[in-house]
Simulated assay, not measured.
Amino acid sequence: MKERPILFSGAMVRALLAGTKTQTRRVVKPQPRRVDGGVPFGDAPAWAHAEPGSAMMRCPYGKPGDWLWVREAWQHSNHPYGPYDEDCMVFYRADFLDDVHGPDGEKSPEGHYRTWRPSIHMPRTASRIVLEIKSVRVERLHDISEADAIAEGIERADDFFDCRCWRAYDEPKGSDVVFPDDPIGSYASLWMSINGPGSWDANPWVWVLEFRRLNVEHSPC
């Protein structure tokens, strides 16, 4: 069993904590060069694929049974007077997304702002979420099913006229922009909010990781 870090946005951290996110999709790098529409991977295990004529391509996030520890935006109790150490109290930006002053304190009447550290700088000892990989596969982004889109942790919005609705990402909460009975449309907006304009239309090959959250903080010695 190996252990690797993985980054998640605040909204997805909340979904992990709520147990509504059990999958994630990450772009395969480099992208396969096949242009005939066929599947470019051979008969290797799902976590280790090979494009014809190329070296083996292994999933950088691991294989079933491996662990992923989550990096997220954070801060520690020694800030700004000292460096982080393992005895510090750790705070997570995802826990402040519903704060009336905003997660960064930008609406605070006192003008007090919260200074968060980027997720990429989170050390292992500050992480609070560990995931165990259950399965790995490769597919085109647009192949996602409605069930898988929901498993990606998209958020339900208020229902209208007995129709299930899903949140539109990159839109304020409470916005009138929703996706009625269209979880894939909601996931597409989430994908673009993370990966940028045009990233959904590009329809890249992606690693699909299915996982479960573990009730542990550190890997065994």
Score class of each variant (00 low, 15 high):
K134S: 15
I150L: 08
A46I: 03
M192V: 13
V27I: 15
P32C: 12
S145A: 14
Y169H: 02
H101A: 12
T20W: 01
W67S: 03
R213A: 12
W69Y: 15
V90P: 00
A44G: 15
E139M: 13
A94S: 11
P220R: 11
P30M: 05
A202C: 06
P83T: 05
R14H: 09
P45A: 10
Y187R: 01
R25Q: 09
R14L: 14
S77A: 15
S219P: 03
D170V: 04
P204E: 03
K21V: 01
E152N: 01
N195M: 13
E146K: 07
D181N: 14
S77C: 10
P83C: 10
K63H: 15
R164S: 11
R117P: 02
F96H: 08
S219L: 15
P118S: 10
D36Q: 11
Y113H: 09
Y84L: 13
S199F: 07
E171D: 14
M57I: 05
R25C: 10
A46F: 04
R33P: 05
K29Y: 14
G65L: 05
H142Q: 13
R34E: 15
I184A: 02
D201C: 11
G82P: 04
V27P: 08
D148E: 12
D201N: 10
P30G: 05
W74A: 00
R14I: 05
D36E: 12
G82L: 03
A168H: 06
D104N: 06
N78V: 08
S127Q: 02
E72R: 02
H142D: 12
R124K: 06
F179R: 00
W191Y: 08
G38F: 01
L190D: 03
D170P: 00
D182K: 05
C221A: 15
W205L: 03
H79I: 09
H121N: 09
P220W: 06
V28P: 00
K63A: 15
A15C: 09
V216N: 04
E217N: 11
G37N: 08
V100W: 06
S77K: 08
H101C: 11
T24A: 10
R164E: 14
G102S: 04
G62V: 04
C59E: 03
E106Q: 12
S199N: 05
K173V: 13
V90R: 00
G153L: 01
E110V: 12
G82N: 05
D95A: 14
A18R: 02
S189R: 02
R128Y: 07
H76M: 03
M12K: 08
P109N: 05
V216F: 13
L7A: 12
E171N: 09
A94I: 01
E110Y: 10
G37D: 07
R33C: 12
V90Y: 00
